[in-house]
């Protein structure tokens, strides 16, 4: 299914048999994360619709936010598109489309670096704002702090993999081709046959990034990150003025009121 022994000597892929730890990390953990993410979102939506918000702090401070927040979010959107392209589209497809390895590599690294740096710069500015602005800091919960820590780690690890690849390119070598390891593993998760060996063959930087990323997904339903799932994509397609009737039970006034003593 995947090249266990890379024929290309330039690739620094170490073919080793997956250990028990590998199986736990790349075979079991993804499903735990998936269960927590989906279950958590459903639970949060049912239990806590009221708490499902961006918890914006713009009212307190908007000068810094105006620069940092779009920088972070737009950077992140590009990063997400990059991840989708890199993880979901098999290498053979892009090659079939005539995109050579070098072209793809150049695109991914340049765009990835720019977007990654924007994202990191944005989040650093946002955290700095959060720490130094009194009102914003006092509106910060422990939950937020943990989330920021994992988020920044995920971004740093991701950027590290990109920069390592770019560095390898600049010194004339070849970076690790995640499209033959991480991407293969990622796609295999969804057909319920996790290719642990593929992921195990990846480098430490990628493994770290994936681990932190999975942790972040696990935190998603329980932090302010949930607001990402309510991105208002339907807004351009609805009429401007929304009308709603008073309640869902038009005969509510006729509903029999249960007496306290009726148990």
């Amino acid at each position: 299914m995947i090249p266990m022994t890379p024929t290309d000597a330039g690739h620094a892929v170490d073919a080793v048999a997956p250990t028990a730890l590998d199986h736990i990390l790349w075979g079991v953990f993804p499903y735990v994360v998936l269960a927590v993410l989906v279950g958590g979102l459903v639970w949060r939506y049912r239990y806590d619709k009221f708490g499902w918000t961006t918890r914006s702090s713009q009212l307190y401070e908007s000068r810094l936010l105006r620069i940092a927040s779009p920088m972070f979010h737009f950077g992140l959107l590009v990063v997400i598109i990059g991840h989708v392209a890199g993880l979901l589209i098999p290498k053979s497809w892009t090659e079939a489309m005539g995109v050579t390895e070098d072209m793809y590599h150049f695109m991914a690294l340049s765009l990835g670096t720019v977007a990654g740096v924007c994202t990191l710069g944005g989040i650093v500015l946002l955290i700095w704002r959060r720490r130094t602005n009194g009102p914003v800091f006092s509106a910060t919960t422990v939950n937020d702090k943990v989330m920021y820590l994992v988020l920044v780690m995920a971004i740093l690890a991701g950027l590290a993999t990109t920069l390592l690849s770019a560095g390898a390119d600049l010194t004339g070598g070849h970076g690790h081709d995640y499209r033959e390891t991480v991407s293969v593993w990622f796609r295999s998760i969804w057909i319920l046959r996790p290719d642990v060996a593929a992921m195990a063959a990846s480098t430490f930087a990628f493994k770290l990034h994936v681990m932190v990323g999975l942790t972040l997904f696990m935190l998603f339903p329980f932090t302010r990150l949930v607001h990402a799932f309510s991105a208002p994509v339907q807004y351009p397609f609805r009429p401007y003025v929304v009308y709603r009737t008073r309640d869902q039970h038009p005969n509510r006034s006729e509903r029999v009121v249960r007496r306290g003593w009726e148990g």
Binding site: K49, F50, W52, T53, T54, R55, S56, H227, S230, P232, Q234, Y235, R238, V241, V242, Y243, R244, T245, R246
Partner: peptide
């Protein structure tokens, strides 16, 4: 953007659905 605000059809009162508001 969320469609959380609405005008009540019966009496025209404009309200915010607190469960649908996402704080944009």
């Amino acid at each position: 953007p969320s469609g959380a605000m609405y005008k009540r059809a019966e009496d025209g009162i404009v309200l915010v659905d607190q469960d649908k508001c996402r704080g944009w």
